Lab assay of single mutants.
Amino acid sequence: MGFKLLSKLLVYLTASIMAIASPLAFSVDSSGEYPTVSEIPVGEVRLYQIADGVWSHIATQSFDGAVYPSNGLIVRDGDELLLIDTAWGAKNTAALLAEIEKQIGLPVTRAVSTHFHDDRVGGVDVLRAAGVATYASPSTRRLAEVEGNEIPTHSLEGLSSSGDAVRFGPVELFYPGAAHSTDNLIVYVPSASVLYGGCAIYELSRTSAGNVADADLAEWPTSIERIQQHYPEAQFVIPGHGLPGGLDLLKHTTNVVKAHTNRSVVE
């Protein structure tokens, strides 16, 4: 069995187990497998329904001669939608809004960016022009300005110390501490036991640490421990890039980060 097929099978099995364990909360999309990078042309966006009122959005972007996937989250909030992270750029984010209108038909009224990198804030200006209120932590807003990236308009308070959590509509926002970046936030959907790890969490097929220019490698494993301790009931975990899975993604990420750190020390 090929690795790609095995990865998709694991996603399907995880979703099936969740649907059985929580039949009222989960209505997993039966329309197909989780979209992969090879299936999404740059400039297009796919939506994948995880649970009743919960979707991931998947886009792709060219970077350094390669094409990478990027995940975000959409959560229903009454007759409105909360968006977590842009679709990595203005063109993708405009396509995301169009796809949401086509498939869901509810307005996106608020959006949260989970850290300051372009795959999370690139497209904020498109959201703002569409009347979406954009939010991020003060740290993310400051770092985005320093980096020359787009800056969300509103500040999220109460997320300055490791372990801080605040309720934001249908989700809980959690600051686990520094990891992929010093400002990275985690998003949890309690009604569906869905954990969105953003770039602080890796997919299972990833074996290298990737972009760690703004990471705190020493603190990252401790931050992941905080996530595990705060959300032990999480059933569906979405990484910032690639295929979702279960809580095993947290341990896998820790292993990859520690291996990278150990290699760096040896070198």
Rank of each mutant, 00 (worst) to 15 (best):
T153G: 12
D164P: 06
A218Y: 10
V166Y: 08
P221V: 13
H117A: 00
V171L: 06
G246R: 08
G240V: 03
V256F: 04
V256I: 12
S139T: 14
Q49L: 12
V256G: 02
H230F: 15
R110V: 14
R226V: 14
I186L: 08
E225H: 11
Y48V: 09
V11N: 06
T153W: 07
V194E: 00
G89N: 13
H260T: 05
E39P: 14
R128L: 05
P69K: 06
A209F: 13
E157D: 15
A218V: 11
E145V: 10
V194A: 06
D118Q: 15
I238A: 01
H117W: 00
V212A: 09
G242R: 02
I50F: 05
I58Y: 10
Y34R: 09
A136N: 03
Y175E: 01
E172R: 03
R46W: 10
Q103D: 10
S22H: 14
A213L: 14
F63W: 09
W220M: 02
S56L: 10
A218L: 15
H252Q: 05
I151D: 02
S56H: 07
L127M: 06
G169A: 04
D64W: 12
E225G: 11
G2Q: 09
T86G: 03
Y188C: 02
V124N: 09
Q103H: 15
D85I: 00
S193G: 09
I227Q: 04
G89E: 01
A95I: 07
V124R: 03
H154M: 15
P23G: 09
P23S: 08
R128V: 07
W55N: 02
A259G: 10
P69T: 06
A130F: 15
I20F: 08
Y231A: 03
L127F: 05
A111P: 03
Y135S: 02
S38H: 13
V124C: 10
P221S: 11
N92I: 04
G163W: 09
K258P: 04
S205E: 10
S16Y: 14
G198E: 03
V126R: 12
P190M: 05
P138D: 13
I74N: 02
D119N: 03
R46C: 06
P176H: 03
N211T: 12
P190E: 06
V166S: 07
V67S: 06
G148A: 14
A15K: 15
S191Q: 07
T36M: 08
G122P: 04
Y34K: 07
D125P: 04
G131H: 06
I74T: 08
H180G: 00
G105N: 06
S223H: 04
A192H: 06
A21R: 11
G32L: 15
L6T: 07
I84T: 03
G131V: 04
L217W: 12
A179F: 02
Y231M: 04
A259K: 09
H117Q: 02
V171P: 00
P244C: 03
S155K: 10
L10M: 07
A218C: 07
D164A: 11
A200V: 09
L96Y: 00
F26S: 12
A95E: 09
Y48N: 09
V132H: 00
A234Y: 04
L47M: 13
L83G: 02
F116P: 01
R46H: 07
K102L: 14
V189H: 15
D164Q: 14
V265D: 11
N211Q: 12
